[in-house]
Design a protein around this nucleic acid. Structure first.
Lengths: 177, 177
DNA sequence: GATAATTGTAATTATTATTGTTACAGATTT
DNA sequence: AAATCTGTAACAATAATAATTACAATTATC
């Protein structure tokens, strides 16, 4: 349990909210327990990440019954870069030496500054790539992989999704019995 | 102490070996203790990373007195991508969910495959950026930052580096007394 | 207004990757 | 033969991440 999987989980959350927004208009609001069951983790873990996504104005949440989270704007207006930026911790996937290198050595005293330039360039290229995939595209790609053709009408897809949801709840309750 | 700094340390090692190879021809061989003092860590940590660099044919090591490590080819023929590839652990800086998402959910069951495509593209772009910086360029950049003009003759630079080495050993011994 | 459901977050514990350290066999030079 | 270094195994220390527990604050419904 290490090595930061928050980008993957955040994307998972956003894909769920996007699917619900686009296809289940009336049921766009999703609570943290439902998301947690799909991600297979604790609701608090989800709420913690949701908190960052909210900070970045990517989702909106409401407490109370009928509460939950909803995507803040259309998935075509959100890219994976937005999600990446929302949850990135230290500003980079790259990491410098844990202890400060020896400043009395020409290399030790200057490698960090020099290496940082290259790392920054690499980081920018990551963001550029991520900005090319919209959440809409990712979500539809996921649904297609799930055998749900996204060229069908919204209502047809909504029915399929709601059916899957029911099946799933059945599985869940049968497991719990 | 987490989050893999091996790329930074490996680059540090390679920059030292590169500088020694280019400017201190006769003293190109460097032992793990000397590197460890520059990196500010334990020699075994260095030898562990050297072991990966050797695996990737980037360095050559020899045991015994006068032993140590030497760069395997000219620094102009090595890029930061080579170093990155040599020490990368799991093939990517990106990480998927720690636990497997719920396969009964359309999103949970398919997000990994879908997300992997984008992550792979991002990873490729990192490698492309890193392949554009040669170890020679990085090493000279470091020396310039250390106030050592690399436009001088090799012998002049060698003298400066050897002098720095002596100063440094003086500091070290005075600290140890 | 009381009740139930949900978010938001603090505090604590568990897990695990990475690094640091010790120890020692094997190789090589003198 | 002695000294010095590499190579690696084994174990301990550290720290980042995630999981869990707990509870106040908010909101909908009756």
């Amino acid at each position: 349990m290490n090595s930061n999987s928050q980008f993957a989980v955040a994307t998972h959350i956003m894909a769920m909210l996007a699917g619900n927004k686009i296809y289940l208009k009336d049921n766009a609001c999703t609570n943290s327990s439902m998301i947690a069951e799909s991600v297979n983790t604790n609701p608090v873990v989800i709420r913690r990440i949701l908190s960052k996504l909210k900070e970045a104005d990517l989702v909106i949440s409401r407490p109370g019954p009928l509460g939950g989270s909803e995507i803040a704007r259309h998935p075509s207006k959100i890219t994976l870069k937005d999600i990446y930026t929302a949850v990135e911790e230290n500003g980079s996937l790259f990491h410098m030496h844990y202890c400060e290198p020896n400043p009395n050595c020409p290399v030790g005293g200057n490698i960090r500054a020099s290496l940082k330039e290259t790392m920054d360039k690499a980081e920018s290229s990551i963001k550029k790539v991520l900005s090319k995939t919209t959440l809409l595209k990712l979500t539809n790609d996921i649904l297609e992989r799930a055998g749900i053709s996204t060229s069908q009408s919204r209502k047809t897809i909504a029915k399929i999704l709601l059916n899957k949801k029911l099946e799933y709840e059945k599985v869940r309750s049968s497991v719990k019995v």
